[in-house]
Every structure is written in structure tokens, then in C-alpha cells.
Design a protein around this nucleic acid. Structure first.
Lengths: 124, 124
DNA sequence: TAATTATTTTAGAACCATTCCAAAACGGAG
DNA sequence: CTCCGTTTTGGAATGGTTCTAAAATAATTA
């Protein structure tokens, strides 16, 4: 665990919970001016392998990194792009009962409207 | 419905069911030598909007296009990359019961081992 | 501590699927 | 046949991520 790696982990842990690499880079650079995007990627990978954080891949746009590595699902607000946590139960288990194929893992992203954007929309 | 658009639809319909743009391009070019990748993309978009086919987005690599536009889920073989159809029921409905957030849509890709690769693995 | 080796960091190039652009080609309506 | 809107085309641009090889840093050994 190097200094910069710790800094990147800190940035994510002190965040709302889900950040994209470019935003992590932006925030980490404030703490360590000599920070570079490649280093951010390197360390995000390392932290994932160490099980300290979790990568959340999306079909459109950049991936997110989740400070909470325990399994859960994610929703993205279609208005502001915010990522939210979801608890949908043991889908792996559930899917397994519905097919004969071996289910190794899955990528799931739900599209939603976050409470803030939902409220703003109601006002208008 | 132009000639080339029909050709692209035909390629997909005569396929195993799920193809990626580059493969559609390769096959369509055999029918129409003057075919260009941009045209494939244009027409895939148009066919999607017309509801004749369906785009299946993935977090890693190229999107797939599905000749069956009715809603169902998809699995990808981690060995050979083949896309398979899954029937997992009305997940939209199901997810809605498990959260207060409005669920607009979702992207789901299950990672599996297709029967063929599974068999080959058993042999070895 | 010095020397050696392994790991990180860095800058920038490379990658790849997709989109964008503006010009040329096409196709149907009149 | 002509005109106008749509399609097609080639190529450049985009954007996130990965790769590469060299420099810097850290860890290990003597």
C-alpha cells in the first residue's frame, strides 16, 4: 500500500460512494499534485484485486468504482448520472433456478431517477 | 427500407441470433461489396428504432444486435463469446417490488459457459 | 549502509468501438 | 427529368481504457 494508493482509496472512501476514474483523478490530484491518470487506473485495479473496492462496469460511458465491496446492485440516474445502491437480494441464486446454464456472474445496471432529480421534475 | 438496410436485417435474421457490428459488416459485405461500417451502424440504429431488432449493450467490448426484439435476457459465454438467450421472467416488475426508486429500465448480462465450451472443458 | 531486485509511477502512444461530419449518391414525388 | 429529403460514404474525431518502456521509488539482501 503505497502513499498514492492510499490517497486514491481515501478519495473514494470520503466520497458519496461511487466515482468514475476521471473524478477520482481530479480529487486525488488536489491531495497529490503529482498524480497522473495512469496511476489512478493502476491503483484502482490493484485495490479491486485486493478486494478493498469494487468496479462497477456500465454499458455506456465510464465505469464506476464503489467504495463498498460487498455484493449489491446499482442504479444510475438518467438525469444527473448519480449512482445509487440497490438491494435486490441474491440474484445469482435466483437466476440459477431459472436456467440450466451455469451462472458465473453478471453485470446489472438499473436506470432510474434519483430522488433529487425526481423532485425537481415534479416541481417543473 | 432501403436495399442495404434490408441486407443488414437479412444478415442478422439468417444468423444464430446475436451478432456484433463488425461481424454484421463482414457478412453484409459479402452480399453487397460496397458496404461500409458506417452504413451498418446507421442501419442498425434505424432498425432498432423501428423495433425490428434489439441492441444489447455490454460492459466489455462491442454491443450485440439481437434479431429477436421481444424482451428477454442474455448470457455471454466467457470462453467463446457466444451470446445466448435467457428467460428470467419479468425482472422489471420484480425489481420494482424491492426498491422505492422508479425503475425505468436495466442492462443485464449474465456470464456463463455455453454448452459447447462446457462440454469441451469436461473432456480435457 | 550499500547494492540489488521488485514494484510503482509516469508520459504518451495505442487501442477499439462508436459517433460525427460534410460531401456525394440515391430514390421517390411531382 | 427534376427536385428534395434521405442514405451512404470515407475519414476524422471521440472517449475511456490499456499498453509500453523508461524513470522513480520501495523493499530486500548482503
Amino acid at each position: 500500500m503505497t502513499t498514492k494508493r492510499a490517497a486514491i482509496l481515501q478519495v473514494l472512501r470520503e466520497s458519496e460512494g461511487h466515482l468514475q476514474p476521471d473524478e477520482i483523478y481530479r480529487r486525488a490530484k488536489e491531495l497529490y499534485p503529482g498524480m497522473v491518470l495512469a496511476t489512478v487506473y493502476n491503483n484502482l485495479h490493484a485495490l479491486c484485486e485486493a478486494g478493498l473496492i469494487r468496479r462497477v462496469r456500465t454499458a455506456d460511458g465510464a465505469d464506476f468504482y464503489d467504495k463498498t465491496p460487498t455484493p449489491h446492485e446499482h442504479a444510475i440516474c438518467t438525469s444527473c448520472g448519480l449512482m445509487l445502491d440497490l438491494e435486490l437480494g441474491d440474484l445469482l441464486q435466483e437466476f440459477a433456478t431459472k436456467t440450466d446454464l451455469p451462472i458465473l456472474s453478471y453485470d446489472l445496471i438499473v436506470h432510474t431517477q434519483c430522488p433529487k432529480c425526481h423532485a425537481e421534475k415534479a416541481e417543473a
